[in-house]
Nucleic acid binder design. Structure first.
Lengths: 160, 160
DNA sequence: GTACCTGCAAATGTTTTGCAGTACG
DNA sequence: CGTACTGCAAAACATTTGCAGGTAC
């Protein structure tokens, strides 16, 4: 019991969700789902479209935008806030996450896993009379490695 | 020393910031600044424009959109994520905040103050090699009061 | 006097929607 | 076979920008 869901598992979940919703599994949708599950990092609609077109050349923007909310509802993807550009970003929901660090220097998004934080977030919300349905922590940060050592282990071609 | 800054204090800070930046204090700007400081709850550009026009009828959209980033840089306002609609939301930076609870039932935004959470957020980021520049916690939640008692103390005309 | 600011309108860029045709179940 | 999905193009939407004046300092 690792708590991490495989791509194949997630693909099944997506398929089952569509079936349960009386939605249809078409070639464009299959290409988009498989493509979305192939992302290791956060992505947005435009990137997903471009990548999906490598599998099925004719996929249209609308199909991607119409499918994304369904994949979020199925629990296969989750929406995240990167506040980087004006795109809505998504990531594969392989395992629960506490939040994200968005590094201003190395431009990367690092996932944060901290049970203690999540616990306290829930506690605080509960003690204020709320039952959390979604916890989302974003930490905009400066890269210590870059500033102290002059380079960052995550990406050495960074722009300071 | 309450840690809470008054509107007059914030107004001064905004004015001083503009002066320091060699920016000019025009009637439209004064109206927008005073209006923004009159908000008790989060607001977005469109709401700010509408409210500011009550003071100065001719204020244009562009003036609001051009001033907002300056007010954020001055520290008088802060950007927040409500993920409610597609607007960028702002709130008056009267005191530091840990995060926000966005209630799905009573439609309100409640500020969260929890030093323990903030401490741990900083600790986690530091131990991952980052120096946080902005911490932003959003908790989407269901209103316990509404579900348990059938009404919510914050807003009894809520939509269940 | 000269930056800098203004309002207006047009441009931008992402996401949504209407529609006629197509294909999944 | 009907309903849901498709691609396309146009629309919607918040926000940004260019420009010709106007104004604070």
């Amino acid at each position: 019991m690792s708590g991490v869901r495989s791509d194949e598992e997630l693909y099944r979940i997506a398929i089952d969700y569509l079936r349960a919703e009386k939605s249809k599994l078409t070639p464009p949708r299959e290409a988009i789902i498989r493509t979305s599950l192939s992302f290791a990092a956060p992505f947005h609609a435009e990137q997903l479209l471009a990548a999906a077109r490598l599998r099925d050349r004719l996929i249209s923007v609308a199909t991607v935008y119409r499918l994304l909310p369904l994949l979020v509802k199925s629990g296969v993807l989750r929406e995240i806030d990167l506040k980087h550009d004006s795109h809505q970003h998504y990531e594969v929901n392989r395992a629960p996450t506490t939040g994200h660090i968005v590094c201003q220097d190395c431009q990367q998004v690092i996932e944060v896993q901290d049970a203690c934080l999540t616990l306290r977030e829930n506690f605080v919300a509960n003690s204020m009379g709320f039952t959390p349905t979604k916890l989302s922590l974003r930490i905009e940060a400066a890269c210590q490695d870059l500033h102290e050592k002059g380079h960052c282990p995550r990406q050495d071609g960074a722009t300071p």
